[in-house]
Nucleic acid binder design. Sequence first.
RNA 1: GGCCCCGUCGUCUAGCCAGGUCCAGGACACCAGGUUUUCAUCCUGGUAACGCGGGUUCGAAUCCCGCCGGGGUCACCA
Length: 582
Amino acid sequence: MNDRPVITRFAPSPTGHLHIGGARTALFCWAYARRHGGRFVLRIEDTDQARSSEDAARGILEDLAWLGIDWDDGPEFTARDEDGHTASFGGDARGVGPFYQSRRREIYERYFEQLVEAGLAYPAFESPEELAAMRKAAEAAKRTFVYRQRGDYDHAAAVEQMKSAPHVLRLKMPGQAITVHDSVLGDVTFPAEELDDFVIRKADGFPTYHFAVVVDDELMGVTHVLRGQEHLNNTPRHIALQRALGFATPVYAHMPLIFNIDGTKMSKRDKDKAAKKAVREAGISSTRALVERLQAGARERGALESVSDNDLQEWLKDKQRQLGREQVGAVARALGLKLPEIDVEDFRAAGYLPDVLCNFLALLGWNPGEKNADGTDVERFDRKYLASRFDTDRIGKTNAKFDRDKLLAFNADTIQHGLSDEQFAELWLGWAERFDTELSGWARADAARWAIAARAARPRTKTLSDARETIGFALLSDEAITFDERARKKFLLRGEGAGLAVLQALVPILEKIDPWKPEAIDAALHGFAEEQQLGMGKVAQPVRVAVTGTGVSPGLGETLALVGRDGTMRRIERCIALGAGN
RNA sequence: GGCCCCGUCGUCUAGCCAGGUCCAGGACACCAGGUUUUCAUCCUGGUAACGCGGGUUCGAAUCCCGCCGGGGUCACCA
C-alpha cells in the first residue's frame, strides 16, 4: 500500500501545558515522519468549548518548538533559538487546514448530513440525566451500559424531530466484531456487544473527539496514527466511523504509557499533592505563616495572599481540592519545596536541556537495539539519530515508569561532558533570563565574570537551576557571608588556629597576585603550600571557608576570581577579625 | 465488575518473532575501594531479574495452556 507518503500528526487538546507524556507522543510521531521522509502535522483539538484556551494552545506550540520538534503542516509559529536564529514552522502548504478543529465545523457538518441521510447515524434525544439513569440501572443489574438504538426507532420521525428538539447524533454500529491491526500490539479484536452507538455530535453542535479525529485524519491525509495505549479501546469506534464514511483506515501504533516511579499516573495533580503534603508536615494552617516564609517582595506573595485561611484549611482537608498553578508555585517557594516536574515547561524551568529530554523520552518505550563498540547499549543519542532510526517495530509493549534519577544523570552528563564552557555559559544565561532574572542581571553586569562562573559551575551542574547554588557565594555581599560553624572549627580553629595563621600569612601573597585570574591565583596558592610544606588541603580549606563561609565551593582559583580581589581580602579580614570568637 | 493490553535486576531495557553461544548483557540507582585542595567528576569492583504452575522439546527467558499480578477503558473529555 505504501507509495503514499507517510503523514503523522500530533493532536493535543489545549487544556493546559504540554504534558511530558504528550511530548513523547509528539516526539515519536515526529520521528516516524522524519524517518520515512513524510510530513508531520500539528492539529489543535479544541472541540471542548469549556476547557480549551488559546493561551494553552500557544503554550503547547512553544513547548514543542523548545524541544526541537518542528511540524510541517499546522499553526504557524516562529521560534527564536539561543543564537538568535529564527525558524518558522507550520503553515498550510497542502491546503488541508485550518488546524484548529473549532474552525472546521462546516466541514464536519457535511459528513454529519451524509451519515444521517444514509441512515448510518441518527439523532438521539435522551437528556444527560436520562442517560445517567440508564447507566445506573445497568450497573444495578451488573451489566455494562451499552447504548443501542431502540427497536422501535423511527428514523424519519426522528430526523423530523431533530429540527426542533435538542439532540445528539450517534453512529449506528454495524453489529459485528472489529479487529484493530496494530503495529505494536498485533491484532486486537473487540466483540460487537462491547461497541455502543457512540455520540458523534454533541448537543452544542460540536463534533466529539472521535468524529473530528476521523474526519480530520482523512482530510489531512494521515497515514499512521501513533498514540498512547489509552486510546486502544477507542480505535474500533474510529474504524467503524471510517467504514461508514468510506475512509481509509490508517496504520495504528499504540504505545505504552508512562507512569510515576511509584506507579501512579503522572498528573498535574502531583504538584498540588506535594505542596499539600509539605504544608501539612510543616504544621502550617494560615496563609500568613506561608507568606512570612517568602522573601520580602517576592513575586509570589500576591498569589498566596489571595488565598484565605479558610480556603487553605479546606484545601488541606480535601484531597480533591486543588490550588491554582501559581499558588502551588508560591507554596513551594515558601517552603523551599521542589515540585515534581510534570509538564514540559516544568522540566524547562528546572533546567533540563531539550536534547536530553528528547533523548530520555525516546527511551521510554523505544530503543534502538544497537550496541556500542564496547558492548554497551546505544542509549545516548540526538534527535537526528532518532529521526534516522526510529520505527514502530522497536516500540515496546510494556508501560514505563519515569525514572527522574536517570534523566538527571543524562542531563548532568551532557552538561559536564558534552558542552564547552562557552556553550554552557550561553545556555545558562538564556535560562536565567527566563527563570532567574536576578542571576541574569548579575551575568549581564560583567561578561568576563560570567565566563568564570560558567567554568566554575559547569563541572558540578546537574540542572541549570542548581548551578546558581554552586556560585551563590559570589552573588552575596561580603558582609552577607555567614560562616558555617562546623567548617570554621574544623578548618580555622582546630590545631590552635592553624587555619587562621594560614590566612594571615596569605594576605600579602594574595595582594600581590597579578593578574587576578583563576590560573594565577591557583599558582600562587600552590606555590605557598609548597613553600610552607603544607598539603594543599591545609591551605585551600581555610581560604574557602573565609571566602564562601563553607567548606564546599568550586576550584579555589575560580572561587576567588569570582569574588574579586577586594571581596576576597575583605572576606578574609572579616574572618580573621572574627578569630576564635563568634 | 465487563472488555482490552501487558508481565526480564529497584527503574529503563537487550535477548523472545526465526528455542541451545544466557548459571541472562547494558544503563541509571545502590554498595565497597581508589584518584583529587572541598564539592562534583573520574577509575576499579560488587549486589541485583526471566511472576507462578503445567506442558511441548534432547534442550525454554524464548513456543503452548492455566493461574496470579499490574495497567488501560467503560462521558454529549480528549
